[in-house]
Simulated assay, not measured.
Amino acid sequence: MINVMLVDDHAVLRDGLKNILEMEEDIKVVGEAVNGNEVVRVVTSCQPDVVLMDINIPDKNGIELTGMLKRDYPSVKVLVLTMHSHDEYFMAAIREGADGYLLKDLPTDQVVEAIRTVAKGESIIDPTLTKRLLGFYNQKQEASSTSELTDREKEVLICLVSGKSNKEIGEELYISDKTVKIHVSKIYKKLNVKSRSQAIIYAVQHQLVPLP
């Protein structure tokens, strides 16, 4: 069972999400918070696996709260769900350790799957944001740090930036899921990142993958 906490000051949205999530057999909403001051108290009392975090909430914003939760409750996954597609919000949330970043116009079934994804220890980024990131950078010579990656690790990194899951990467490269996880772990270590989303941001910023 995946225990989920909702952080949003809009009651209608919160109630709607709760009703949708509790229709899933493997998900349970164990707590809610409407402002920043409530978040720590509710997290401490309900011990969620995943916090679904809005950015615009009273007292403390969701980005600040994300950083605080990732420092004080490292086992808790934070999935940002917001209306903000601005680059500064997205980048700030990733820097603070968010395990995922989704926009509120995403279909609810994809939000449900995203919760399952981050609960498993993987990261997820809204597809529209990944495409925009790729469009921000012109194709240039690869950064020198790519020399630290093996050819196979570069292939896996390209798949990560394309938004493929571990299973899809394995199928494309004809390797097992276990082997994919080993390559991903090595990529994280070499790039000094802690999540899939951070690896994607790093790869795009440093032109480590071919860009359109």
Rank of each mutant, 00 (worst) to 15 (best):
V30D: 12
V50W: 05
E25D: 14
I2H: 03
V7D: 10
I175V: 14
D49M: 12
E122S: 12
E113K: 06
L17M: 15
S123T: 02
V42W: 06
D177T: 12
K178N: 15
V39C: 12
T66S: 11
G67W: 11
N3P: 00
E168K: 11
P212Y: 08
Q110V: 00
L69I: 13
Y174E: 05
I175A: 13
V80L: 09
N37G: 06
V40Y: 09
M53I: 12
S195V: 00
Q207N: 14
T150L: 08
L211N: 01
V161Q: 05
K60L: 13
A114C: 04
E24G: 05
N166R: 02
E113V: 02
G121P: 00
S144Y: 10
T44A: 13
L13G: 00
D26Q: 12
L160Y: 01
P212D: 14
D109F: 11
L81C: 01
N61A: 09
P210S: 07
T117K: 02
I2M: 03
T150D: 06
E25P: 04
T128N: 11
I175F: 14
Q205S: 03
G16P: 05
S45R: 12
E153A: 13
N56Q: 07
K131H: 00
N37W: 03
K77M: 10
H206L: 10
Y174M: 04
I200M: 14
N35I: 08
N19P: 01
L133R: 04
A114N: 00
L102A: 03
L65R: 04
L81N: 00
A92Q: 12
I169W: 07
V34H: 03
M91T: 15
P48Q: 15
V42Y: 06
Y73Q: 06
V161T: 04
E88H: 14
L17T: 10
I158K: 04
L69R: 08
P210Q: 10
K77W: 06
L129W: 00
L81S: 01
E142T: 10
I55W: 13
A92C: 01
R132C: 03
T82N: 08
G121A: 07
E88Y: 15
D126Q: 11
G62K: 14
T128M: 07
G31M: 04
I124W: 07
M83W: 05
P107V: 11
K60C: 00
L211C: 01
S145A: 11
T82K: 06
S85K: 14
K164P: 00
K186Q: 09
L69V: 08
K194H: 03
A33V: 06
V204M: 15
E155F: 05
T130S: 15
V29F: 09
K120M: 03
E24T: 04
V184Q: 04
L102R: 03
K154N: 00
E96A: 13
A203Q: 13
L134H: 13
K104S: 00
H206P: 01
G67C: 05
V161E: 01
D54N: 09
V39S: 08
V51I: 14
D59T: 15
N3E: 08
D54K: 07
K167Q: 05
K189A: 02
D15K: 09
N192Y: 02
A143H: 13
